[in-house]
């Protein structure tokens, strides 16, 4: 009896007993995505993540590709080789040029060189219908060496996202969903709303976490992150890097697109975006989250 008690004590001491988290622990560790707004914590590298593009519309799908590219670059740079990034569904396929980064360094002179790591790691899955797309996304999560799956998430319901949540233990799946599905229920652990904009005459983006499941830091809710495309200004680094901590909430007139797609009440994305042409700069009050 004493031996059993000792075993119980040992288990309790190890912290393996407790209320189970709705977010399954991933096989892979968290990913450093370079977003200071997450307050030092790294993004959990498993489960279902969702991104809604503010420009996306039913008639013309323009998904939040920049977030997928940003995370893909991060994953490829940090994951051990061999690694693969799988893009499922034609609406989740980026322009191939966006898979090439540029390096500029001393080695070989101050000439630009291509960084084709993401180019060589990318595999595109052409899955048409909803059923095939869901099957291909689930299969992609089982692919050997997969570090990130980016999938067209249009039309996926709660059951489908739960199924993906259970499958996404080794690597995460980022669902690129159309803006009009922003109110649909989902099992995603984090949901982002991405706003395209500009910074110093270059494309730049701001994303806001509009839903964060329990198990993640509550302060992440409403946290805003931003990054831009440093295609041709890199210095000894991959050009596509969104690492700049210039973020945050700022007051500005409502964007016409937000009223068109009817962002629901309480969605912070409805009041967060920059006026076109404005630089992204940290607010005087610091992080709002």
């Amino acid at each position: 009896m004493q031996a059993i008690q000792q075993q119980v004590d040992a288990v309790l001491a190890s912290g393996r007993v407790g209320v189970p988290s709705p977010i399954p622990a991933g096989n892979a560790g968290p990913m450093q995505v370079g977003w200071p707004a997450l307050q030092g914590a790294d993004l959990p590298w498993h489960g279902v993540h969702e991104a809604f593009g503010a420009l996306d519309a039913a008639a013309l799908r323009l998904p939040a590709m920049s977030m997928a590219l940003h995370l893909a670059w991060r994953a490829v740079m940090q994951a051990p080789s061999p690694h693969r990034v799988l893009w499922v569904g034609r609406h989740a396929w980026p322009h191939p040029r966006a898979l090439l980064g540029s390096l500029r360094g001393l080695r070989g002179g101050w000439r630009q060189r291509l960084d084709a790591r993401l180019w060589h790691a990318s595999v595109f899955v052409d899955a048409g219908g909803l059923v095939d797309r869901l099957w291909a996304t689930e299969m992609s999560l089982q692919a050997p060496g997969a570090v990130l799956v980016v999938a067209d998430g249009a039309g996926l319901n709660l059951t489908a996202t739960r199924r993906l949540q259970l499958a996404a233990t080794a690597c995460p799946v980022l669902l690129l969903r159309p803006a009009h599905e922003a109110a649909s229920p989902s099992a995603a652990i984090i949901r982002w709303r991405v706003q395209a904009g500009t910074h110093q005459d270059q494309p730049a983006w701001t994303a806001r976490a509009v839903r964060v499941r329990s198990g993640l830091p509550p302060a992440w809710l409403d946290a805003a992150v931003s990054w831009d495309a440093w295609w041709e200004r890199g210095s000894d680094a991959v050009a596509w890097e969104g690492i700049l901590p210039r973020v945050n909430t700022m007051d500005r007139p409502q964007h016409p697109m937000e009223s068109e797609h009817g962002t629901h009440a309480g969605d912070p994305a409805a009041v967060v975006a920059r006026r076109p042409g404005d630089p992204i700069a940290p607010p005087a009050g610091g992080l709002a989250a």
């Binding site: 052409d126 099957w135 291909a136």
Partner: peptide, 18 residues
Amino acid sequence: WIDRVRQRLGGVSLRVPH
């Protein structure tokens, strides 16, 4: 993995950038 995906989605379902 490639064979299983191709079997269901077709021979040209997996692509690489060019």
